[in-house]
């Protein structure tokens, strides 16, 4: 694991999300009502909707375009044969850390 500090927890609105630009495309960072953080691909596999613009409820995200719902833990879509990549993220002393092993892989190559 290689944890990178990408910002303060309050940079993300409560029950909201922000985007992170990476070589793998945009990654969405979510903050739940309980202050948990999750990182997933920002792109909905259905029609490419930006998940970071969706509604965060519990540990789920609803895509803003056609209301597909994804579990933020597993990336699995509810009731659909589809999923989104998830990436390890955590909070340490109010700072958001994300595991950059995969996300910066291209630069190492």
């Amino acid at each position: 694991m290689s944890w990178i500090d990408i910002g303060h927890i309050d940079d993300i609105p409560l029950r909201g999300a922000r985007r992170l630009k990476t070589h793998l495309g945009c990654v969405a960072i979510f903050r739940t009502d309980l202050g948990e953080v999750f990182a997933t691909a920002d792109r909905c596999p259905h029609k490419g909707g930006p998940l970071s613009e969706g509604i965060v409820h519990g540990q789920s995200i609803t895509c803003p375009l056609h209301n597909w719902v994804f579990d933020l833990n597993t990336g699995q879509a509810k009731g659909e044969e589809a999923s989104i990549p998830t990436y390890p993220a955590r909070i340490v002393d109010q700072r958001i850390l994300i595991d950059a092993t995969q996300l910066t892989a291209q630069s190492a190559a």
Binding site: I4, I6, G7, D11, I12, P13, R18, R19, L20, K21, T22, H23, C26, I29, I96, A100, L103, T104, Q106, S107
Partner: peptide, 14 residues
């Protein structure tokens, strides 16, 4: 600033 990406890892990697 809330409308910008939180961070840009493509830049950091470069």
């Amino acid at each position: 600033e809330r409308y910008q990406p939180l961070a840009d890892l493509t830049l950091e990697a470069a």
